[in-house]
């Protein structure tokens, strides 16, 4: 489902004397449907960078990133948009939304863009929010005022409302209490069971051990010269 070959990436800082900073070289990995892989490595090793490249957020210099048959390195923007809409889900650590939109609508949005009727999309969103223990009185408020843990759960709800065949999870259990952590872990297990290919960054080692079939150490992808 997700297949990466010979991927490399460097940043060129034109406004700082044109400094070139290589951050990745010769990355290869493959995650099949129903499989969950964890990216590991020290801070700064490139876990988030790799994740962002798979999401299409960072450009690659060479190689290929295939998700469901689309190569993100060469794909046109609209193909990446279609991929994000239908195939590839992403739970980031940050919540970026229009300030006054209600939490229910924020969560329902991925379904609305897919053309799901609004009542159905909202019903699904409410079910997920309830499961993630977001108090009902918050549903009509904008999540921008929520606590970190609540925002995290809103992000998770957004990422799980559509059964994406491929999922990217950036620290999904960070800043969650035990009960909510359990809910999120079972959501991930359900996604795995329905055949989603999952790549995640988990600092929560117990979660990693419970969910992941494989660990991928991104230190191996760090350019030797720069390291």
């Amino acid at each position: 489902m997700i297949e990466i070959e010979n991927l490399s990436k460097s940043f060129t800082l034109h406004n700082q004397g044109g400094a070139v900073i290589p951050v990745m070289q010769g990355a290869n990995l493959r995650v099949d449907a129903g499989e969950c892989a964890a990216l590991v490595g020290a801070s700064g090793a490139g876990k988030s960078t790799l994740m962002r490249m798979i999401w299409g957020n960072y450009l690659a210099q060479t190689g290929s990133i295939r998700v469901g048959g689309v190569d993100l390195v060469t794909a046109a923007p609209r193909d990446i948009l279609a991929l994000r809409r239908e195939t590839l889900g992403y739970v980031s650590q940050f919540l970026r939304v229009v300030p006054r939109v209600s939490t229910v609508d924020v969560v329902a949005e991925p379904l609305l863009t897919l053309g799901t009727p609004r009542p159905d999309a909202r019903a699904r969103a409410e079910a997920l929010l309830a499961r993630l223990n977001i108090p009902k009185r918050l549903w009509s408020l904008s999540p921008t005022t929520f606590s970190g843990g609540e925002q995290q759960r809103v992000n998770i709800a957004r990422g799980f409302i559509h059964p994406y065949p491929a999922l990217l999870l950036d620290e999904p259990t960070a800043s969650l209490d035990a009960a909510n952590r359990e809910v999120v872990l079972s959501l991930i297990e359900e996604a795995k069971a329905r055949g989603a290919a999952i790549i995640g960054i988990f600092h929560d080692e117990a979660a990693r051990a419970r969910l992941c079939d494989r660990l991928i150490d991104v230190t191996g992808f760090t350019p030797k010269a720069a390291a």
């Binding site: 940043f11 962002r52 299409g56 957020n57 960072y58 450009l59 923007p77 990446i80 948009l81």
Partner: peptide, 9 residues
């Protein structure tokens, strides 16, 4: 390019 890609990279 993609909005978030142009802004982030």
């Amino acid at each position: 390019g993609l909005t978030d890609q142009v802004l982030d990279d």
